[in-house]
Amino acid sequence: MDLIGFLIIGLIAGWIASTFMRGGSMGLGGNLVIGVIGAFVGGFLFRLLGFAAVGLIGQLITATVGAMVLLYVVQVLKKA
């Protein structure tokens, strides 16, 4: 996937994750950062569990799950 596509998936995944998690949207830049880092986290976790993302929807799901995990970890660390 090219860089533009990766960033678009990261942006969408960050927006979806911030919508499902408490705290609401973090703006365009925040959603992009959370989504892109979440894509790496999700890819790592899915490979660890033996799953593989296939196609655009699979990549979006992987990035969204990773972004949600990342947001959860950030929320836990903020409370500590």
Rank of each mutant, 00 (worst) to 15 (best):
Q75V: 04
I37G: 11
G30C: 15
L49C: 03
F6D: 00
L71N: 00
G27C: 01
S25W: 04
T19A: 08
I12M: 08
F40W: 13
F6C: 10
G38N: 08
V41Y: 07
L56I: 14
A39N: 09
L48R: 12
A13P: 13
V54D: 02
R47F: 06
V54H: 14
M68A: 13
A52N: 08
Q75S: 09
L11Y: 14
L11R: 12
V76P: 11
R47W: 13
L49I: 06
F6Y: 05
G38Y: 02
S25M: 05
F40Y: 15
L60H: 01
L71S: 08
G42K: 07
G43W: 04
I16P: 00
L77S: 02
A63K: 00
G42L: 09
I61E: 10
V74S: 11
N31M: 00
F46T: 12
G43K: 07
M21L: 12
G23Y: 07
G10L: 09
G29I: 11
A17F: 09
G42Q: 07
I61L: 11
I16L: 14
I34P: 00
A17Y: 02
G23E: 05
A63P: 00
L56A: 10
A13H: 02
L70Q: 07
A17P: 06
V74P: 00
L77T: 10
G66L: 01
A67H: 02
V74K: 08
F44P: 09
A63T: 01
G23P: 03
V74M: 06
V54S: 10
S25I: 10
A17Q: 11
G35A: 11
A63L: 04
S25C: 05
V36C: 10
L45F: 14
V73T: 09
F40H: 07
G58Q: 01
V54K: 05
L56Q: 01
F51Y: 13
L7S: 05
S18W: 07
I8G: 12
M21F: 01
R22Y: 08
V76M: 14
F20T: 02
S25P: 08
Q59S: 06
I37L: 12
V54C: 01
G14A: 05
T64G: 09
I8H: 01
L28Y: 06
G35D: 04
G23N: 10
V41S: 11
V36A: 15
L48H: 15
L56H: 02
G14Y: 13
N31S: 09
F44Q: 11
N31L: 03
R22K: 15
T19L: 04
A53P: 10
V33I: 13
N31Q: 03
R47I: 11
G42E: 02
G35P: 03
G27V: 00
I12T: 05
V33D: 04
V41A: 15
L60D: 05
L60W: 08
A67D: 06
A13Q: 01
I8V: 15
F40I: 13
G23T: 02
F6P: 04
L77M: 10
G42R: 10
V41G: 08
M26P: 08
F44G: 14
G38T: 03
L56M: 11
A53Y: 03
G58N: 04
